[in-house]
């Protein structure tokens, strides 16, 4: 068996062997003359075949579109944090100023003055679409779906800065859709300001009865693991098709339920 690890052959094929590996590669070349050249040639052939089979242009276009989206989200986050900082600074000035001006008598009833509620413009929304051949069909609450149907979700956070999107099914399964990974930190739950689509559509599995999507939103970063725990707890309950998630205060939840038909789909998958 060759002692050349794949990653080192990859680096050699790209002429990017790191300094820490040069001695190792020389040693291998002495011990197994011609082996490196043979494997580099094979890799280059594989590269050419891959790019012929899957031309780069469509993939690069998709990647560039996602990069543009990601950069826009970054710019928005930066603006939001600067705005937050500016507002905090302004709030400190106002509060300090008001405290200085406030007559002593007013302080006694201060606790009764509830702060004005901040109203959210619009409300968070989760929309589901089913791909039927070339067409896309919007799915309303309790729409009947089938195993194999291809579903795409669109969402709007309605002015709330953070959110988690996940689903539970009639078999007690829980699937996280946003953010992508269940070990994601709270900061990864940041939501775009505009309506956005999840990057991937997916085919429904054969779990029975229903697929129920939850959109959990907040003004502050959301604890993904805690939210998933609430979803798992609900998925195990008898009222999982209708019940609510038990979430800490400050989090809001919306759900969209799709009913599962007993028979398989007649829709043609792409």
């Amino acid at each position: 068996m060759t002692s050349l690890p794949d990653w080192l052959v990859e680096r050699a094929a790209l002429d990017e062997v790191p300094p820490a590996s040069r001695e190792r590669i020389e040693r291998i070349e002495r011990a197994e003359p011609g082996e490196l050249a043979r494997r580099v040639a094979a890799l280059r052939e594989d590269n050419a075949a891959e790019l012929a089979r899957y031309p780069a242009a469509p993939a690069v276009a998709q990647i560039e579109a996602r990069v543009a989206q990601a950069r826009q989200a970054r710019r928005r986050r930066r603006r939001r944090s600067w705005l937050g900082l500016a507002m905090s600074a302004a709030a400190v000035v106002v509060v300090v100023g008001l405290a200085a001006l406030r007559p002593a008598a007013d302080v006694a009833r201060g606790a009764q003055d509830a702060p004005e509620e901040t109203r959210v413009k619009g409300s968070p929304r989760l929309l589901a679409f089913r791909q039927v051949g070339e067409q896309v069909e919007r799915l309303a609450q309790d729409a009947v779906v089938h195993a194999g149907d291809v579903i795409q979700l669109r969402y709007k956070a309605g002015g709330q800065g953070y959110g988690v999107i996940a689903s539970i099914d009639g078999a007690g399964g829980v699937t996280l859709h946003y953010p992508l990974h269940d070990d994601a930190p709270p900061q990864a739950t940041v939501m775009p300001a505009e309506t956005a689509a999840l990057p991937h559509a997916w085919a429904l599995d054969d779990a029975p009865r229903f697929e129920r999507f939850f959109f959990v939103t907040a003004n502050d970063p959301v604890d993904v693991q805690r939210t998933l725990a609430a979803l798992h707890a609900l998925a195990r309950r008898g009222d999982s098709a209708t019940g609510s998630l038990e979430l800490p205060s400050g989090l809001q939840q919306w759900s969209l339920r799709l009913r599962k038909a007993d028979r398989p789909s007649t829709h043609e998958s792409p």
Binding site: L14, N47, E50, A56, V60, I63, V67
Partner: peptide, 13 residues
């Protein structure tokens, strides 16, 4: 992007 993808895409895949 295109050059980058053609050069490193197969290795990443």
């Amino acid at each position: 992007s295109h050059t980058y993808y053609c050069t490193y895409g197969p290795m990443v895949l």
